Computed example of a mutant assay.
Amino acid sequence: MTSPARCFSPADMAPRRTRPNPPAQPAPAAAAAPGRQPEPAAAHPAEAYTPRTLTPAEALAPGRIGKRERFRNQFQHGLRRSCMHPHARLVALTLLGYANDKTGLLSPTYRPTVKQLADHTGLLPAQVQVQLQVLTQRGWLYSRPIAADPCAGTTGLCLAVPAGVLEQLRAARAKETAPRGEAPVSATPADEPDTPPTPGSARR
Rank of each mutant, 00 (worst) to 15 (best):
R17Y: 12
P86I: 09
R19S: 11
S82N: 10
I65R: 10
P15Y: 07
Q137R: 13
P86W: 13
E182Y: 10
A171F: 02
R6G: 04
G164T: 07
H85A: 15
G181Y: 04
P184W: 03
W140M: 00
M1P: 02
R81G: 12
V161S: 09
A163Y: 14
A29F: 15
A126L: 05
S9F: 14
G200M: 06
G66D: 09
E192M: 11
L159S: 01
D101F: 09
P34R: 10
P45Y: 04
L96W: 01
G35Y: 10
E182N: 07
P28N: 12
P56D: 07
A152I: 02
V91Q: 00
P196D: 15
D149Q: 15
R80P: 00
P40L: 09
V130G: 06
R173I: 03
P86H: 11
R144E: 01
A126Y: 06
T136F: 01
W140P: 01
E58D: 14
L132F: 01
Q129G: 10
R144Y: 01
Y142D: 02
F75I: 01
Q127I: 00
L166V: 07
Q131S: 00
L123W: 00
T109D: 11
T53M: 07
A148S: 13
L141C: 05
Y110P: 02
P86E: 13
L96T: 00
E192W: 12
A14R: 14
T195M: 14
A187N: 06
V134C: 07
T198R: 12
Q25R: 11
L159A: 04
N100H: 15
E69T: 04
P199G: 10
A174R: 13
T94F: 01
A57D: 15
Q74N: 11
S107C: 11
K67S: 11
T188F: 00
G200Q: 09
Q116G: 05
N100R: 14
K67W: 14
P86C: 09
K102L: 14
P26A: 03
A24K: 08
G139D: 05
T121S: 12
A99E: 01
P28Q: 09
Q25I: 03
L79P: 00
K115C: 02
R16H: 10
P108E: 03
E182F: 06
A61H: 06
E182V: 13
E39L: 12
P34T: 04
Q127K: 08
L166H: 09
E182S: 13
A24R: 09
T2Y: 09
P56Q: 08
L106R: 02
S186D: 09
A24V: 13
P23G: 06
G97Y: 11
A171Q: 08
V91D: 00
G122W: 03
Q25H: 10
L96D: 04
Q25C: 07
A174W: 00
G200T: 13
L124I: 08
I146N: 02
V128A: 02
A126P: 03
R70I: 05
L169M: 05
L166F: 05
M13R: 11
S3V: 05
H120G: 01
A126W: 04
E39Y: 05
P62N: 06
A174K: 08
P179C: 12
R111Y: 00
A171L: 03
L106H: 01
S3I: 08
R81K: 13
L169D: 05
